[in-house]
Amino acid sequence: MTTVMAQGTFDILHPGHLHYLQKSAQLGDKLVVIISRDSRVKEKKGLHFNEEERREMVQALKPVDQAVLGSEGDIYTTVKETDPDIITLGYDQKHDEKEVQKMAEKATGHKVQVKRISGLENYSSSNIRN
């Protein structure tokens, strides 16, 4: 079974999020979505929904097999617990693919692919919020 891990804040759900999650789900057998904790979101004051509300909304989406809250500490812990074969990044996530891959492989002890999902770049929570 191929486990795909996607992650994000998912405060204001929009078609860009759905596209990201649908494309991520197509890459494997199980899609686990990590929801950013309130304590780790830099734009905390701008959040419309708390972490549990955001997790529940994402869990209700058809492509999602499991939505869980991320670690209060670091992403390393979350990756180790999720043990993904593939990690997907959204077009606007600033993470470097090679660095994520190196960290994930160290956390899991096996090869992890990192794939950036593009498409629907016109949608962004920041733009909608503004």
Rank of each mutant, 00 (worst) to 15 (best):
31 L>A: 00
30 K>H: 13
49 F>I: 06
78 T>Y: 04
89 L>P: 10
26 Q>N: 09
26 Q>P: 06
95 H>I: 13
27 L>S: 07
30 K>G: 01
89 L>V: 11
44 K>D: 01
72 E>R: 14
27 L>A: 01
56 E>D: 12
78 T>L: 00
70 G>F: 01
44 K>P: 02
26 Q>Y: 09
33 V>T: 02
52 E>V: 15
56 E>S: 12
43 E>H: 15
31 L>S: 05
85 D>G: 07
53 E>R: 12
27 L>T: 02
25 A>G: 03
56 E>R: 14
41 V>G: 00
22 Q>Y: 06
64 V>P: 00
50 N>Q: 09
55 R>N: 02
51 E>F: 09
76 Y>V: 07
34 I>P: 00
46 G>T: 14
44 K>W: 12
78 T>G: 00
57 M>Q: 11
60 A>N: 09
87 I>R: 11
38 D>Y: 04
58 V>E: 01
84 P>R: 06
80 K>F: 01
52 E>S: 14
43 E>F: 12
48 H>P: 00
65 D>R: 06
70 G>R: 05
86 I>H: 07
83 D>W: 10
56 E>T: 08
35 I>C: 03
84 P>H: 03
70 G>V: 03
22 Q>F: 08
84 P>D: 09
90 G>A: 11
79 V>N: 05
74 D>S: 13
86 I>K: 01
73 G>L: 12
51 E>D: 02
42 K>Y: 10
66 Q>P: 08
34 I>T: 12
32 V>N: 05
93 Q>C: 09
87 I>G: 06
